[in-house]
Design a protein around this nucleic acid. Sequence first.
DNA 1: CCCATTCTTGACTCACTCGTCCAGAACGAT
DNA 2: ATCGTTCTGGACGAGTGAGTCAAGAATGGG
Lengths: 202, 202
Amino acid sequence: MARPRKFDEQQVLDTARERFWSGGYAATRMDDIAEATGLGKGSLYGAFGGKQELFHRVFDDYCGAVVDGVSKQLCGGDADAYARLSAHVHAVAAATAADTARRGCLLAKGTAELAEHDETVAQRAHTTIEALRALLEDDIAACQRNGDIDADADPGRLAALVLAVLRGIEALGKAGASEETLTGIAATALAVLPRPPGADRG
Amino acid sequence: MARPRKFDEQQVLDTARERFWSGGYAATRMDDIAEATGLGKGSLYGAFGGKQELFHRVFDDYCGAVVDGVSKQLCGGDADAYARLSAHVHAVAAATAADTARRGCLLAKGTAELAEHDETVAQRAHTTIEALRALLEDDIAACQRNGDIDADADPGRLAALVLAVLRGIEALGKAGASEETLTGIAATALAVLPRPPGADRG
DNA sequence: CCCATTCTTGACTCACTCGTCCAGAACGAT
DNA sequence: ATCGTTCTGGACGAGTGAGTCAAGAATGGG
């Protein structure tokens, strides 16, 4: 009935994500996004409304993708729960260290720039970190059931601590901490988690 | 010989800090700063050069003030070293929770927004977190001498971990974590620090 | 008192960016 | 084929914000 779109919405969102991620919200121009995607501004505005709405879509997508990714890394049986936790913590450190462009995490960057003045961003950031905390808590509880972490510890509190360490790794990475520092933090964080009484600490 | 300045440079920097802190770099207008300080734009540009240089001054001042403040909180004799560490970690959590405006820390905000594209900011952020890590390391070493922390642990690595937790608390606070969560993280982080063999874990 | 020098004020320029608009193009239904 | 509808591309308008400039004001020295 009507002329079909020539572009793929998800592809445009991905490209826009790159731009917002590199430059931040304020410093990214809609003209850049138009040029990067090959779209005319009319199409861009027609499809997404405006800069703020486009960013909200991008941010929302990104947060969802982060939670999905972490979920894939952390969900599984009790026997491997500690291995998954360890792999995840090390993976975050490695990814942060490998991020030579120091763009960091869009969640952190967007939150830092906009949460104060944009309630939508603040809300989404909140639900995202809560989801991450819950994933960590589930995995830690599995570790406890499997005897890898002291069952007397509060898994919710440990999860919050690990989440803080992970977010801290991101923050320090953006501030230029060395790979050695970041991987050291990851290893130390795992090492200080409370083991069951009598367990070997190696 | 010449007409003297009517304004206090430090006061202008403090006011500019407030603006940059609230809005971020890109979203803060020089006109805002001019109005907030009562200066004409000519004076502003004459005294500080431009927006970027002004921000560098502000950021530099802020980083220095942060290191000074932490230094005051953490330096002292061995006997109180653990108390100072505990007080500091709890103070960061409390300050973050109390920051209802969610502006966070200018160090984190400025780094997130600018480190990628502004080498000066990146450098300053790096020296600052390294200074903070060193202060924590000194205090942790004091804790070890006093028998509050396991002397076998590497104080540098523990310091990096604590710093990551502190930066993580800031990040989570900006993302809307509750006061309970933040103070819980602080308490848990202190609780998991390794105690000397045989010491009471309470 | 006058002058050189530096500071102040705010209007001005210029480039830039968000968002709009419109003429034309591509499609399916009839 | 024709028509209504939706998409496209890019020119345009309006507003904004960084930085400049020139005329005037305040100061101490001669």
